[in-house]
Each structure stands twice: as structure tokens, then as C-alpha cells.
Design a binder for these strands. Structure first.
Lengths: 143, 143
DNA sequence: CTCGGTGCAAAATGTTTGCAAGTAC
DNA sequence: GTACTTGCAAACATTTTGCACCGAG
């Protein structure tokens, strides 16, 4: 593992500790498989990727790991129009375009969104944890 | 039905015709049940509501009706973090706050969003049909 | 050693499909 | 009369749960 990878792993170990999660090979593999992944994979897709590292890992473990990572903030769940839950390592603010036909999600940047302020009516009643512009439509390959 | 309701029904009939959908009592009931509904209901919830008007309607009919309404633009599907598809009569631009615990969706307005321009990189490759700010967090009753 | 995590299997939940009978046009 | 819709049931896909064994701390 390179220096950057080592650093990332340290951060991960740190986060597990502070969330009270034990450090298991399965969790590390799920984490490594997702960090840097921009494809917003489903649990199934993560499972297939992780199985290359740990061939006898079960789907349930992957799925439970993903859900617990979401609960403690290591990953983010992605808004979706389909039937499958999808995940995002979610570093930094970015926005999504999602194809209504194939479900593909494309990230984009929109620096001007920095000036967005959560309306008083929302802020007064709710704890806001995520913010994002979501576009929908039809992607090039589905047209 | 009052005058406004009559007008809404006319629009609905119009839309069905131009989409090649036949006008059935079931479809009209689904449409009426959703128009003006701000709760972003799931198919199951729409089913329960429609069944009060047509007691022997089946869940499948409601679900298929919702899906075909989405295809022809009479309704919109709502982005979601849960496992259930949800629907929105979707008149006019508005934005969503969704509770990550209970899934409740609250609409809000943000007039400044009118100045949002879809980035060139997206516009060049994709057909954009919907645009919205999506906030996530924890609602007052889940805290 | 202890408690949380894993893997397997079963159950639950939600969505989609096939088809005969019914109905809008 | 024809083609689209409906209702029922079965098939599918995906997520969640229960539990005995295992392994990190």
C-alpha cells in the first residue's frame, strides 16, 4: 500500500474506533473497495468487488457493513429513483445528475451553490446533514 | 365536483388522450387521490387511499397506473433514500428535505434557485428533465 | 474471556410479469 | 370488435432478521 493509502487506512481505523466498530478484514475490504469509487455502487456491486479480495465474504456482511458505515458517517447513501440502495464515499460537496432510464449517476460541480442558505423554516425544525442539487433526465446512451 | 375540480379533470382527460391512455375509473381515482397531495405517498399509501373510492381495485392496478403516469409526465417519481418508490403530483418547482430516519419529505421554496444554470458539461450530453435541491437530515419527531 | 461480527438460511418487503376476463373507444 | 386494462396470482429482486460459531479487543 502506498503512503496515501496508508493514511486513508489510518483515518478509517480512527473512525471505526470512535464509532465503536471493531476493525475486521471484511470492513477494511469494503472500505477500500469504496474509497475513491465514483460509480455510486449498489450493495450488490460492492459485494462483487470485495469478493475479489475476500472470496468467501457473504453478501449480508457487505450490506450490513455498508449500512453501519452510513449510520456512523463513513459513507453516504445516495438519493435514488430506482429500487436499489446506492452508496457514495462522499468526499466534498458535489451534485448529481441521474438517468431515469438506466439509473446511472453522474457527478458535477457547481461552485455557486456555496452561497445556498438553508431556509429558516427548515433550519428551525430540522437538523440538516446533507445538501445537493439533483438533476434528472435521460443520459446519452439511453436516448 | 366543484368547478376547479372539473377543470383539473379536463386537463387529466386531455393528458390521457395525448398519451394514448384510456380513461378508466381506476385511473381517474388514482389521479384524483394524488392531485394536491403533498405527502409524496408510496404506491401502498395511494392504494389505501384509492380503495376508499373503489373498494375492489387491486394494488397492481394502482402501481401500474402510477408508473404509467410517470412515463407520460402526469406525475413525477421522487428521489428517495429508502426502499420504496414515492410519487409527487409535482406542480411547480420546489425542493425537498428528507428525514433519513423516517423518510418523511418536506417541501420548501427557494426562489434564488431560478438563477441556477445546468452546467455545460451536463447539458451537452444529457436531456435534463427535473432539477431540485435535496437536503437530508433528521426531522423534529425523529430527534 | 467477552461481546460484537460473520456467514448461512429464512423471512419480509416491495416490484414486476403473465394471463384470462372485462371494458373503453 | 379490437386493443388496452384490470385483477389475481405467481415470480422476482432486494433488504432484513435469527442464530450458532468465530475472532478482535
Amino acid at each position: 500500500m502506498d503512503k496515501q493509502g496508508k493514511e486513508a487506512e489510518d483515518i478509517f481505523v480512527q473512525r471505526c474506533r470512535s464509532s465503536g466498530l471493531r476493525l475486521t478484514p471484511q470492513r477494511l475490504a469494503v472500505y477500500e473497495s469504496l474509497s475513491g469509487d465514483k460509480s455510486h455502487p449498489s450493495a450488490e456491486k460492492v459485494f462483487r468487488k470485495v469478493r475479489k479480495m475476500i472470496p468467501n465474504i457473504s453478501f449480508d456482511t457487505v450490506n450490513r457493513t455498508l449500512l453501519s458505515f452510513v449510520s456512523c458517517g463513513i459513507l453516504k447513501a445516495v438519493e435514488s429513483y430506482g429500487r436499489v440502495k446506492r452508496f457514495d464515499p462522499g468526499l466534498g460537496e458535489h451534485h448529481h445528475f441521474q438517468c431515469l432510464k438506466c439509473g446511472k449517476i453522474i457527478d458535477f460541480e457547481y461552485p455557486d451553490f456555496a452561497s445556498f442558505r438553508v431556509p429558516e423554516t427548515i433550519r428551525r425544525k430540522f437538523v440538516v446533514m446533507g445538501r445537493r442539487i439533483v438533476l434528472t433526465g435521460i443520459c446519452d446512451s439511453c436516448r
